[in-house]
Simulated assay, not measured.
Amino acid sequence: MDLKDEINRHRSECGVIYKMNAQQELVLTDGRSCTVPDYEVIPETTCIKERAFSTCTQIRSVDMSKSQVGTIGDAAFFACKNLKAVHFSECLQSIGSFAFESCSLEELDFPDNLKTIDIGTFSLNKELKEVIIPHGVTEIHNIAFQSCPKLSQITLLSPTAYIGKHAFRYCDAIEVVYVSWKDENRIKCILPQDMKEKVEAFPRIG
């Protein structure tokens, strides 16, 4: 099946719309009428447009792991309240603000290419328990994980340069923030006061 046929199939069978942009890259533009609970993105896709699936209550999981998605737009999955699982592309570099706010994500597996976690990206995910921030991330913006009441463990594999003051506000279940021993003091300096005492270094090797 060629790409044009695949695009038409996803529109007719899944209710998901794709378009080519000016650079002839495949963009997922509208999934708000998605009829498939467990949806797999077309492999040639490079971008999921802002608000693409916003408020779609049908979708339960989305798999973009075989795709080339490098960008997920602002509010792309905003208030997809039944969305429990997302499998990211290894090409992913940026996730827009409020992209997954008010979903039901239970875990996150970020690719190493990810650079930025934007404002409110994963706020109000009430089932999220653990977050591992990969090596490539340099910025975690304000309210990125705000009001995730079950979030108890954060692991910062990255020497993160910026963490917004309220990135983890109202995450009252946090017990520990793991960091590399060489980054311990610096990370403490950029975390809010109530999280400094929860920072623990990974064991020193060698």
Rank of each mutant, 00 (worst) to 15 (best):
E6P: 00
I7N: 03
I7L: 13
N8A: 15
H10C: 13
R11V: 12
S12N: 12
C14W: 06
G15E: 08
G15D: 10
V16G: 00
V16M: 02
Y18D: 02
K19S: 07
D30H: 13
G31W: 03
G31P: 05
R32M: 15
R32Y: 07
R32D: 11
E40F: 04
T46F: 00
C47H: 04
I48C: 06
R51H: 14
A52D: 07
F53Y: 03
F53I: 09
Q58C: 14
R60I: 09
S61C: 08
K66A: 05
T71Q: 02
T71A: 01
D74K: 03
A75H: 01
F77M: 06
F78D: 15
C80R: 05
L83V: 07
E90K: 06
Q93T: 12
S97I: 06
F98A: 15
F98I: 11
A99Y: 04
E106R: 06
E107P: 00
L108K: 08
N125K: 05
N125Q: 06
N125W: 03
V131K: 06
I140V: 07
S147K: 04
S147R: 04
P149L: 12
K150L: 13
Q153M: 11
L156H: 02
P159G: 02
T160P: 04
G164Y: 01
R169C: 05
C171R: 01
C171N: 06
V177Q: 05
V179Y: 06
E184W: 02
N185W: 02
R186I: 09
K188A: 09
L191H: 01
P192S: 14
E197H: 13
